[in-house]
């Protein structure tokens, strides 16, 4: 579904990604792991059309989107929930969700609104509240709900567990699993290695702009090199 080949990207003279190949198949959860500053968000932004890659190719659902605008990419159903949530702080929860269908799924806005509220009943209780007044966990729900309003075919989640309490992290991963069981493909960008490998089918480990390890999530979880580097074992 998503196909990244030989991707190079960076900021000015600083090259962050140095040749990356990545695939996400239909209905898959793929984890993209790595510590802070290795280029996870850069890869994300390159895929979503926020950052122009310097070389390489990105295709989504058979279409080349390497040079496509962020708008066109959203319209094609590749939707990102960004790190730091990026909800619209002075707009109500309802308005935030409505804007999720700005580019895609506008015709089925009310039906999708009901669907999202069914997934996140907490948001319904806060419908008229400004997004800035929500707790971190609720804002994360709102950001995911907003993305779901656009009827994604592939959802990219950038650090969804960041800043959440351990219990909420649990809930978040359970939710991602549920969304995936309903057929949604997910690219999960995370620092939380254990939880991510537990729900992903495959995983990539990014180090200094290239993939240091990749493969089946179960095999990676058992890999001694990964356990040493990321789990301190």
């Amino acid at each position: 579904m998503l196909e990244v080949r030989g991707l190079h990207a960076g900021y000015g003279a600083l090259e962050i990604l140095r040749g990356v190949d990545l695939d996400v198949g239909a209905g898959e959860i793929v984890a993209l792991l790595g510590s802070n500053g290795v280029g996870k968000t850069t890869l994300n932004n390159a895929i979503c059309g926020i950052l122009r890659p310097t070389a390489g190719r990105i295709a989504f659902a058979g279409e080349d989107i390497t040079r496509a605008s962020a708008m066109a990419i959203v319209a094609s159903g590749l939707i990102q929930v960004p790190e730091g949530r990026r909800v619209f702080p002075d707009m109500s929860v309802r308005e935030n969700l409505e804007l999720g269908s700005y580019r895609r799924g506008r015709g089925r806005r009310s039906a999708n609104l009901e669907r999202v509220v069914a997934v996140f009943p907490r948001l319904a209780e806060r419908f008229a509240q400004k997004a800035a007044t929500l707790s971190g966990g609720e804002q994360q729900m709102l950001a995911i709900g907003r993305a779901l309003m656009g009827e994604p075919r592939l959802l990219i989640l950038d650090e969804p567990s960041l800043g959440l309490s351990p219990r909420l992290v649990e809930e978040m991963f359970a939710l991602i699993g549920r969304l995936n069981r309903d057929g949604l493909a997910v690219l999960l960008v995370e620092q939380n290695v254990v939880e991510s490998l537990a729900i992903a089918r495959r995983a990539y480990v990014l180090e200094n702009g290239v993939f240091a390890m990749q493969g089946d999530a179960v095999a990676l979880a058992a890999d001694p090199a990964l356990r040493r580097a990321y789990l301190g074992m």
Binding site: I50, P82, V87, F88, L99, Y102
Partner: peptide, 23 residues
Amino acid sequence: SDTGKAIRAVARERQGARLVGID
């Protein structure tokens, strides 16, 4: 209006606006 909401969204959160497909 949707355009009005897009204006308010861009005013406070450009990156978020880009990611919901606002021009």
